[in-house]
Protein backbone atom coordinates (compact mmCIF):
# COMPACT_ATOMS: atom_id res chain seq x y z
CA UNK A 1 0.00 0.00 0.00
CA UNK A 2 1.31 3.43 -0.94
CA UNK A 3 0.12 6.64 0.59
CA UNK A 4 -0.24 9.29 -2.09
CA UNK A 5 1.71 12.55 -2.08
CA UNK A 6 4.42 11.54 0.37
CA UNK A 7 7.00 12.91 -2.05
CA UNK A 8 5.39 14.73 -4.95
CA UNK A 9 2.98 17.61 -4.51
CA UNK A 10 -0.75 17.28 -4.85
CA UNK A 11 -1.73 19.53 -7.74
CA UNK A 12 -4.78 21.22 -6.21
CA UNK A 13 -3.21 21.96 -2.83
CA UNK A 14 0.36 22.51 -4.00
CA UNK A 15 1.73 20.60 -1.00
CA UNK A 16 3.27 17.26 -0.23
CA UNK A 17 2.00 15.66 2.97
CA UNK A 18 4.88 16.50 5.24
CA UNK A 19 4.76 20.12 4.23
CA UNK A 20 1.09 20.33 5.15
CA UNK A 21 1.99 18.62 8.41
CA UNK A 22 4.82 20.93 9.37
CA UNK A 23 2.79 24.08 8.71
CA UNK A 24 0.02 22.78 10.91
CA UNK A 25 2.50 21.85 13.60
CA UNK A 26 4.03 25.31 13.44
CA UNK A 27 0.57 26.86 13.79
CA UNK A 28 0.19 25.04 17.07
CA UNK A 29 3.66 26.15 18.13
CA UNK A 30 2.63 29.74 17.49
CA UNK A 31 -0.23 29.22 19.94
CA UNK A 32 2.10 27.62 22.49
CA UNK A 33 4.60 30.46 22.47
CA UNK A 34 1.79 32.98 21.99
CA UNK A 35 0.28 31.88 25.29
CA UNK A 36 3.62 32.27 27.06
CA UNK A 37 4.11 35.68 25.50
CA UNK A 38 0.71 36.79 26.73
CA UNK A 39 1.61 35.47 30.16
CA UNK A 40 4.71 37.65 29.99
CA UNK A 41 2.60 40.68 29.14
CA UNK A 42 0.09 40.02 31.90
CA UNK A 43 2.76 39.50 34.54
CA UNK A 44 4.63 42.59 33.45
CA UNK A 45 1.55 44.80 33.38
CA UNK A 46 0.51 43.44 36.76
CA UNK A 47 3.89 44.05 38.42
CA UNK A 48 3.98 46.88 40.96
CA UNK A 49 5.56 50.15 39.85
CA UNK A 50 9.34 49.87 39.71
CA UNK A 51 9.49 46.15 40.46
CA UNK A 52 9.84 44.80 36.92
CA UNK A 53 13.50 44.04 36.25
CA UNK A 54 15.24 46.04 33.55
CA UNK A 55 18.66 45.36 32.16
CA UNK A 56 19.21 42.09 33.98
CA UNK A 57 20.53 40.19 31.02
CA UNK A 58 23.78 40.46 29.11
CA UNK A 59 22.89 42.30 25.91
CA UNK A 60 26.17 41.60 24.02
CA UNK A 61 25.76 37.85 24.62
CA UNK A 62 22.14 38.04 23.55
CA UNK A 63 23.14 39.91 20.40
CA UNK A 64 25.75 37.33 19.51
CA UNK A 65 23.19 34.58 19.96
CA UNK A 66 20.75 36.45 17.76
CA UNK A 67 23.35 36.75 15.02
CA UNK A 68 24.29 33.11 15.42
CA UNK A 69 20.71 32.00 14.91
CA UNK A 70 20.17 34.29 11.94
CA UNK A 71 23.31 32.92 10.33
CA UNK A 72 22.09 29.38 10.88
CA UNK A 73 18.79 30.21 9.27
CA UNK A 74 20.59 31.46 6.20
CA UNK A 75 22.79 28.39 5.99
CA UNK A 76 19.81 26.03 6.19
CA UNK A 77 18.35 27.73 3.16
CA UNK A 78 21.72 27.52 1.37
CA UNK A 79 21.94 23.84 2.25
CA UNK A 80 18.50 23.18 0.82
CA UNK A 81 19.30 25.24 -2.29
CA UNK A 82 22.50 23.26 -2.74
CA UNK A 83 20.52 20.04 -2.84
CA UNK A 84 18.15 21.55 -5.37
CA UNK A 85 21.07 22.06 -7.75
CA UNK A 86 22.53 18.68 -6.93
CA UNK A 87 25.58 19.83 -4.98
CA UNK A 88 25.75 17.41 -2.11
CA UNK A 89 29.12 18.65 -0.81
CA UNK A 90 27.95 22.21 -0.52
CA UNK A 91 24.95 20.88 1.34
CA UNK A 92 27.23 19.10 3.79
CA UNK A 93 29.21 22.26 4.34
CA UNK A 94 26.27 24.57 4.91
CA UNK A 95 24.34 22.18 7.03
CA UNK A 96 27.48 21.58 9.06
CA UNK A 97 27.58 25.30 9.76
CA UNK A 98 23.93 25.24 10.79
CA UNK A 99 24.67 22.50 13.25
CA UNK A 100 27.67 24.37 14.59
CA UNK A 101 25.58 27.51 15.08
CA UNK A 102 23.01 25.53 17.02
CA UNK A 103 25.72 24.23 19.33
CA UNK A 104 27.23 27.70 19.83
CA UNK A 105 23.79 29.02 20.71
CA UNK A 106 23.20 26.34 23.30
CA UNK A 107 26.71 26.89 24.67
CA UNK A 108 26.21 30.60 25.16
CA UNK A 109 22.76 30.05 26.64
CA UNK A 110 24.14 27.57 29.17
CA UNK A 111 26.76 30.09 30.21
CA UNK A 112 24.05 32.70 30.76
CA UNK A 113 22.03 30.23 32.82
CA UNK A 114 25.07 29.34 34.90
CA UNK A 115 25.68 33.01 35.54
CA UNK A 116 22.15 33.45 36.88
CA UNK A 117 22.27 30.43 39.10
CA UNK A 118 25.46 31.66 40.79
CA UNK A 119 24.14 35.20 41.22
CA UNK A 120 22.71 35.78 44.70
CA UNK A 121 20.63 38.34 46.47
CA UNK A 122 21.32 38.26 50.20
CA UNK A 123 18.91 39.93 52.59
CA UNK A 124 20.60 40.61 55.93
CA UNK A 125 18.85 40.57 59.26
CA UNK A 126 19.66 44.26 59.72
CA UNK A 127 17.68 45.05 56.55
CA UNK A 128 20.60 45.66 54.19
CA UNK A 129 20.73 43.85 50.86
CA UNK A 130 23.89 42.48 49.26
CA UNK A 131 23.91 41.36 45.67
CA UNK A 132 26.59 39.62 43.62
CA UNK A 133 28.14 36.39 42.44
CA UNK A 134 28.83 33.65 44.87
CA UNK A 135 32.52 33.04 45.57
CA UNK A 136 32.37 30.70 48.49
CA UNK A 137 29.80 29.23 50.82
CA UNK A 138 30.68 27.43 54.03
CA UNK A 139 28.72 26.47 57.14
CA UNK A 140 29.64 29.70 58.86
CA UNK A 141 29.76 32.33 56.16
CA UNK A 142 29.03 33.26 52.58
CA UNK A 143 31.32 35.26 50.31
CA UNK A 144 30.08 37.09 47.29
CA UNK A 145 31.63 39.51 44.86
CA UNK A 146 29.20 42.37 44.46
CA UNK A 147 27.79 45.36 46.33
CA UNK A 148 25.40 46.57 48.98
CA UNK A 149 22.32 48.52 47.95
CA UNK A 150 20.14 50.88 49.93
CA UNK A 151 16.80 50.05 48.35
CA UNK A 152 15.56 46.90 46.71
CA UNK A 153 14.42 49.03 43.74
CA UNK A 154 18.05 49.70 42.88
CA UNK A 155 18.44 46.06 42.00
CA UNK A 156 15.50 46.18 39.66
CA UNK A 157 16.20 48.96 37.23
CA UNK A 158 19.80 48.44 36.21
CA UNK A 159 19.44 50.90 33.38
CA UNK A 160 19.14 53.66 36.00
CA UNK A 161 21.23 52.17 38.79
CA UNK A 162 24.24 50.71 37.04
CA UNK A 163 26.44 48.68 39.33
CA UNK A 164 29.79 50.43 39.80
CA UNK A 165 32.67 48.25 40.86
CA UNK A 166 32.63 45.00 42.74
CA UNK A 167 33.87 44.35 46.22
CA UNK A 168 34.29 41.10 47.99
CA UNK A 169 31.72 40.83 50.74
CA UNK A 170 31.77 38.17 53.42
CA UNK A 171 28.65 37.68 55.48
CA UNK A 172 28.25 35.44 58.50
CA UNK A 173 25.51 32.85 58.16
CA UNK A 174 23.72 34.02 61.28
CA UNK A 175 23.32 37.53 59.85
CA UNK A 176 21.46 36.26 56.81
CA UNK A 177 17.70 36.55 56.67
CA UNK A 178 17.23 35.19 53.14
CA UNK A 179 19.57 33.91 50.46
CA UNK A 180 18.15 33.56 47.00
CA UNK A 181 19.83 33.02 43.67
CA UNK A 182 18.50 34.36 40.40
CA UNK A 183 16.85 31.08 39.53
CA UNK A 184 13.25 30.72 38.32
CA UNK A 185 11.82 31.19 41.80
CA UNK A 186 13.52 34.56 42.33
CA UNK A 187 10.58 36.50 40.90
CA UNK A 188 8.10 36.28 38.05
CA UNK A 189 10.53 37.87 35.60
CA UNK A 190 13.11 35.15 36.18
CA UNK A 191 10.31 32.59 36.09
CA UNK A 192 9.09 33.64 32.67
CA UNK A 193 12.67 34.15 31.47
CA UNK A 194 13.65 30.60 32.30
CA UNK A 195 10.40 29.13 31.05
CA UNK A 196 10.45 30.93 27.71
CA UNK A 197 14.14 30.53 26.97
CA UNK A 198 14.15 27.00 28.39
CA UNK A 199 11.34 25.91 26.12
CA UNK A 200 13.04 27.67 23.24
CA UNK A 201 16.33 25.98 24.05
CA UNK A 202 14.58 22.61 24.02
CA UNK A 203 13.38 23.44 20.53
CA UNK A 204 16.91 24.35 19.51
CA UNK A 205 18.24 21.10 20.90
CA UNK A 206 15.49 19.08 19.26
CA UNK A 207 16.12 20.83 15.98
CA UNK A 208 19.87 20.26 16.31
CA UNK A 209 19.30 16.54 16.81
CA UNK A 210 17.21 16.34 13.66
CA UNK A 211 19.65 18.45 11.67
CA UNK A 212 22.55 16.40 12.98
CA UNK A 213 20.81 13.21 11.96
CA UNK A 214 20.05 14.53 8.48
CA UNK A 215 23.60 15.79 8.15
CA UNK A 216 25.12 12.48 9.26
CA UNK A 217 23.51 9.04 8.99
CA UNK A 218 20.25 10.37 7.55
CA UNK A 219 21.99 11.81 4.49
CA UNK A 220 22.41 8.33 3.04
CA UNK A 221 18.86 8.74 1.76
CA UNK A 222 20.25 11.24 -0.76
CA UNK A 223 21.63 8.46 -2.90
CA UNK A 224 18.47 6.37 -2.80
CA UNK A 225 15.78 9.01 -3.04
CA UNK A 226 17.17 12.52 -3.54
CA UNK A 227 13.79 14.17 -3.88
CA UNK A 228 12.55 12.79 -0.62
CA UNK A 229 15.77 13.78 1.12
CA UNK A 230 15.50 17.33 -0.20
CA UNK A 231 11.97 17.48 1.15
CA UNK A 232 13.21 16.44 4.56
CA UNK A 233 15.76 19.23 4.53
CA UNK A 234 13.04 21.66 3.59
CA UNK A 235 10.81 20.50 6.43
CA UNK A 236 13.54 20.65 9.04
CA UNK A 237 14.48 24.05 7.63
CA UNK A 238 10.95 25.36 8.12
CA UNK A 239 11.06 24.24 11.70
CA UNK A 240 14.44 25.86 12.15
CA UNK A 241 13.21 29.18 10.79
CA UNK A 242 10.42 29.08 13.29
CA UNK A 243 12.81 28.48 16.17
CA UNK A 244 14.83 31.41 14.90
CA UNK A 245 11.75 33.59 14.66
CA UNK A 246 10.75 32.87 18.25
CA UNK A 247 14.16 34.05 19.38
CA UNK A 248 13.76 37.25 17.37
CA UNK A 249 10.77 37.99 19.63
CA UNK A 250 12.39 36.73 22.82
CA UNK A 251 15.52 38.82 22.50
CA UNK A 252 13.93 42.26 22.62
CA UNK A 253 11.27 41.52 25.24
CA UNK A 254 13.68 39.88 27.65
CA UNK A 255 16.97 41.65 26.99
CA UNK A 256 16.15 45.09 25.66
CA UNK A 257 12.74 46.32 26.82
Amino acid sequence: MDIPYTVDTRPDTGLYNAKAGIWLFLASEVMLFGALFSAYILLRVGAPEGLWPLGWLNVPLGTINTLVLITSSITTVMAWAALKVNQFDRFKLFHGITLLCALIFVGIKSFEYYDKFTHYEVTLKDGRIADGHLKEATDTHVTISGRFVEEREELYDLHKHKAHGHETITIAREDIEKLSNYGPRHNTYMAIYFTLTGLHALHVIGGAIVIGYLWGPGSRLWRKDPERFTNRIEISGLFWHFVDLVWIFLFPILYLL
Binding site: L24, T188, A191, T195
Partner: peptide, 25 residues
Protein backbone atom coordinates in the same frame (compact mmCIF):
# COMPACT_ATOMS: atom_id res chain seq x y z
CA UNK B 1 -7.47 20.79 19.17
CA UNK B 2 -4.53 22.08 17.19
CA UNK B 3 -4.94 25.69 18.22
CA UNK B 4 -6.67 25.64 21.59
CA UNK B 5 -4.67 22.97 23.37
CA UNK B 6 -1.21 24.58 23.17
CA UNK B 7 -2.18 27.47 25.47
CA UNK B 8 -3.25 24.92 28.06
CA UNK B 9 0.05 23.16 27.54
CA UNK B 10 1.78 26.48 28.22
CA UNK B 11 -0.36 26.95 31.32
CA UNK B 12 0.40 23.39 32.39
CA UNK B 13 4.11 23.99 32.04
CA UNK B 14 3.82 27.13 34.13
CA UNK B 15 1.80 25.41 36.83
CA UNK B 16 4.33 22.61 36.80
CA UNK B 17 7.05 25.20 37.35
CA UNK B 18 5.03 26.60 40.25
CA UNK B 19 4.72 23.14 41.69
CA UNK B 20 8.26 21.82 41.26
CA UNK B 21 10.55 24.81 40.62
CA UNK B 22 8.98 27.14 43.15
CA UNK B 23 7.99 29.88 40.71
CA UNK B 24 4.96 32.11 41.24
CA UNK B 25 3.26 32.34 37.88
Amino acid sequence: LLLAFPPLEAAGIMQLMDKVAGTSF
